[in-house]
């Protein structure tokens, strides 16, 4: 077979596969876009920060700013705050009913710094989610379960008065994650 013929044959064989992979990738990226809207939403990203400081945001604050009162991750890196000023000093198991009152959910804390979403590109967030070193040593299915069942994650859709909830719901995000996984969990290019 001539070289040219070989190329033609290979092309003929692989074309449908390429098309199908291409379609799956496109579908996957579309699912990822839905997921990314959730992860990058202030209700989620404000506590998935790279540095020491949770963020506040909302129309009233003119974009995202630092959490007031010098609130930090905690010198022990735990994400639960510092001695004398743990998150749980103000953040209890339920939302304050007052506008600008402290929101609450079980186990209120910052995500580990390696799970940073705030200010990160979609590609970087996607890569982080897929990296067991940086996603809490989870399979993607476990990530999806976490999103569906964790009470602190669930807070993102029930954030208390005056706060815009994350888009969709925990269940919808879970299903989007499963579909994204089924399409091969593609990440957008950087």
């Amino acid at each position: 077979m001539s070289r040219l013929a070989m190329i033609v044959v290979l092309a003929a064989i692989s074309a449908p596969a390429l098309v199908s992979i291409g379609a799956a990738r496109a579908d996957g990226l579309s699912e990822w876009a839905t997921i990314h809207k959730v992860f990058s939403h202030p209700r989620c990203a404000n506590c998935h920060v790279e540095d020491e400081r949770p963020r506040w945001s909302g129309d009233h604050y003119g974009g995202a700013g630092m959490h007031g009162f010098n609130i930090k991750r905690g010198t022990d890196g735990s994400g639960f705050g510092n001695p004398g000023q743990r998150c749980a000093v103000c953040h209890f198991e339920a939302n304050s009913g007052k506008p600008h009152g402290p929101p609450g959910a079980e186990n209120w804390h910052l995500a580990p710094a390696e799970m940073a979403w705030f200010g990160q590109s979609s590609a970087l967030i996607c890569a982080q989610i897929k990296d067991p070193e940086r996603n809490g040593d989870r399979t993607l299915e476990e990530v999806a379960d976490h999103v569906r069942s964790d009470p602190l994650v669930a807070w993102g859709w029930n954030p208390g008065p005056g706060r815009q909830p994350a888009p969709g719901s925990a269940e919808e995000t879970y299903r989007a994650l499963l579909r994204w996984i089924s399409f091969g969990a593609p990440c957008p290019g950087t």
């Binding site: 007031g68 009162f69 000023q85 749980a88 000093v89 209890f92 304050s96 007052k98 009152g101 402290p102």
Partner: peptide, 22 residues
């Protein structure tokens, strides 16, 4: 009344909380 000033701080089982919001 929104846990923003600390004047209401008490301890519950030794841990500080803002009592205006609990």
């Amino acid at each position: 009344g929104i846990a923003a000033c600390g004047a209401c701080t008490v301890l519950v089982d030794g841990a500080p909380v803002r009592s205006c919001s609990l």
